[in-house]
Amino acid sequence: GGQLLVASLPPHKGVLAKLADYFKTQVEQVGIKVELGREATPEVILKAEPDAVIIATGVTRLVPKLPGIEMAKLVDAEDVLTGRAEVGAKVVVIGGGVVGCETAEFLAVKGKKVTIVEMMDNLAAGMERAHKQYLLERLDLLGVNILTETRGEAVEEEGLLVNTETRTKEVLPADTVVLATGAVVNQELYRELSGRVSEIYLVGDCVEPRCIFEAIAEGFDAGRAI
């Protein structure tokens, strides 16, 4: 449920928080034991001697190998949405996927001057068409600067050095550079438990990063199978 809570933070996405509240209520009503603040290591799981294990370990964020990546002005999109990162007045978002676009809108609504840098020729790839069009229209109305076919090359004191579609290099002024460069599945726990538990199921983003609909369906199917 961690990604669901973060997904509810951008503008127009607050309804997802109600879904998280619904699942929390359901868990309480059926008496499921929940242990917070404890890592689910293979040792912990095997000690419980489970008949089946459902793994929903999500994703690991991709961090590009850029010079200057260690600079304090570089922050993760999730930290921006949750308020864990401070953001300056001028912001460059690296990555124009759904997360990058929604984070850009989140910041623009707060009065930040935002530029999105995307190496592909389109934004919000994979997003449902009507929602994508509405999102892009809102970004335009908010004055978000969009640079497609542009690649970030280095984080510098002045901002982000980019290589544009015309193969020219320039520095985009930025007080803060936000990383929204995607994620890869986290199946480490699955690999460590494979062959050691009689039934094991993968659900959600650890299968493949997608939407909440697929995660709910996979959880439902796993429950029925058990």
Score class of each variant (00 low, 15 high):
Val93His: 09
Asp121Leu: 06
Val92His: 03
Arg38Phe: 10
Thr166Met: 07
Lys24Val: 08
Lys90Ala: 11
Glu214Met: 14
Arg224Phe: 15
Glu43Phe: 04
Val87Met: 12
Ile45Leu: 12
Leu9Phe: 11
Ile69Ser: 06
Arg196Gly: 12
Gly37Asn: 06
Lys18Val: 06
Ala215Glu: 07
Val114Arg: 04
Ala17Phe: 14
Ala174Lys: 06
Ala72Arg: 13
Ala222Ile: 11
Val99Ile: 13
Glu86Arg: 15
Ile94Glu: 00
Ala225Trp: 15
Lys169Gln: 08
Val44Met: 08
Leu202Asp: 13
Thr60Ala: 08
Glu118Thr: 07
Val144His: 04
Pro11Met: 03
Lys112His: 05
Val15Cys: 07
Arg191Tyr: 06
Ser8Thr: 07
Leu147Tyr: 02
Leu107His: 04
Val171Tyr: 02
Glu192Gly: 04
Ala72Ser: 09
Ala56Asn: 08
Gln3Val: 08
Tyr22Glu: 15
Cys211Arg: 15
Asp51Leu: 02
Leu147Gly: 02
Leu4Val: 09
His131Cys: 07
Gly223Thr: 13
Met120His: 13
Gly97Leu: 07
Glu78Met: 13
Glu70Thr: 15
Pro64Cys: 04
Val75Ala: 09
Pro64Arg: 11
Ala183Phe: 15
Gly223Tyr: 09
Arg38Ala: 05
Ser194Ala: 06
Val93Pro: 06
Gln29Trp: 03
Tyr201Glu: 05
Pro64Tyr: 05
Leu16Phe: 08
Leu136Ser: 11
Gly31Thr: 01
Glu70Val: 11
Val75Met: 11
Pro173Gln: 06
Leu136Cys: 03
Glu153Met: 13
Phe220Ser: 11
Glu170Ser: 10
Leu139Gln: 03
Ala85Lys: 10
Val44Leu: 11
Ala222Cys: 10
Thr103Ser: 09
Ala217Asp: 15
Ser198Met: 00
Leu172Cys: 02
Val27Arg: 02
Ala217Val: 14
Leu160Lys: 05
Glu192Phe: 02
Gly68Lys: 13
Met119Ser: 14
Arg84Thr: 12
Val109Met: 00
Gly31Tyr: 00
Leu193Lys: 08
Ser198Ala: 06
Leu189Asn: 05
Ala222Thr: 10
Leu123Asp: 00
Gln133Thr: 12
Arg167Pro: 00
Asp175Tyr: 05
